[in-house]
Design a protein around this nucleic acid. Structure first.
Lengths: 211, 211
DNA sequence: TACGATGTTGCATCGAATGCAAAAATGCAA
DNA sequence: TTGCATTTTTGCATTCGATGCAACATCGTA
């Protein structure tokens, strides 16, 4: 019985408290960041608000910045899963559109937007934010390649496709705040992708007659 | 005569020494970074090697990281100039290919490669590196848009084109170290772009039949 | 209950970065 | 050349993020 619990239900007091503390720190940190700004908030402010010692902060997060980006890994993983879940006979572009749309839609919530604001107005966070996109791109390329049976010849193709799509995601994220409020996230995503594929075809045509 | 000099040739002892000191710091810093690594080098190590006070470092560079990326602004400016210099009747894709190729070729030198290595193996620098690409992308989009007479309708198009091309540049920079040593930078660039435009056309086609 | 493992805390320390005021170097004009 | 105003350099103090270490507390388990 006790051994049964060990393998999966093992969220004893220890794990539970640890998770709770982590959430408390994250919560306190984000609240303070949004309230006074990132730089103006010290680790001590955070730990005081979360009622843990200053030293303990670094037992939960490797740095102040990581608190802001903690959710990113989960997002990347969900995106990879969404790509992997697409039917094998689907084209890469269709698969990536469906996967991105679904994953982004599921992630668009209020806290996400406030976080975006904070990042946008904090130079130190902007750099980390770009790194996030780079990692996302890598993982996406990886997932797309896996769909192609890990064919080495497809590698550069999928790398470029990932770069293009993540680029579009980045541009889309910038355009999002100034979208018509009537448009649903689905429609917005649909429109972005339609435009993107159209542009790709046009650029491809344009290139044929170059020089 | 003296007035003539004032406007452009005015590099008195002050300006000259300041520039020299800046170069000395940059030189010392990069040497030490490449030698012992970025993190393992302290500001004091640098200022000692450059024979200035610790405090003076921050009169020349806002942070340790900025020394590594000091050259980036110049690169971005040259890229913008190269785009602006392309004939007005040239297509955007042809213009961007020519401009990027020329600017990158001119910038591929030994120190550049060593710097790339350093950045690649230093997490803190990687983030800043991605930010560099983002800025480059913005400037490129700006320059491309200017060629189009600042037509608001072209803005998203040029943003996306810039994102695609800079994405390709990023992928290209990753692939560069493992290129066949026989290939000249020109050929390498030519090949990358040829592949890129081909992929764009293919993705565009693929998208037409999606769903 | 006692033991080992894990989690938490305080303390000391390092290094980056900033503000400030004194000191040095420079440009300029009398 | 000398004296004065401006800019540059420097030393000093301080704040804050981050890390290592050892003592202490808490928890799961034999």
């Amino acid at each position: 019985m006790a051994e049964n619990k060990r393998t999966e239900t093992t969220e004893g007091r220890r794990e539970r408290k640890r998770r709770q503390t982590r959430e408390r720190i994250e919560q306190a940190a984000m609240t303070l960041f949004l309230q006074r700004g990132f730089e103006a908030t010290t680790i001590e402010d955070i730990t005081e608000a979360a009622d843990v010692s200053k030293r303990s902060f670094f037992d939960y997060f490797p740095s102040k910045e990581e608190v802001v980006f903690a959710w990113q890994d989960a997002f990347a993983d969900r995106l990879m899963a969404a790509v992997a879940a697409r039917p094998a006979d689907e084209s890469s572009v269709a698969a990536v559109e469906a996967a991105i749309t679904a994953t982004v839609i599921a992630a668009v919530d209020e806290p996400g937007l406030a976080r975006g604001d904070l990042i946008h107005r904090t130079p130190a966070l902007k750099a980390r934010d770009q790194l996030k996109y780079a990692k996302l791109e890598q993982k996406l390329a990886e997932a797309l390649l896996l769909r192609k049976g890990d064919d080495p010849l497809e590698r550069p193709r999928m790398r470029v496709l990932a770069a293009i799509v993540i680029g579009a995601l980045r541009v889309g994220a910038e355009l999002w705040p100034q979208r018509p409020p009537s448009a649903s996230p689905q429609d917005f995503a649909r429109e972005i992708f339609t435009d993107l594929w159209k542009m790709l075809a046009e650029f491809g045509d344009e290139a044929k007659t170059r020089r």
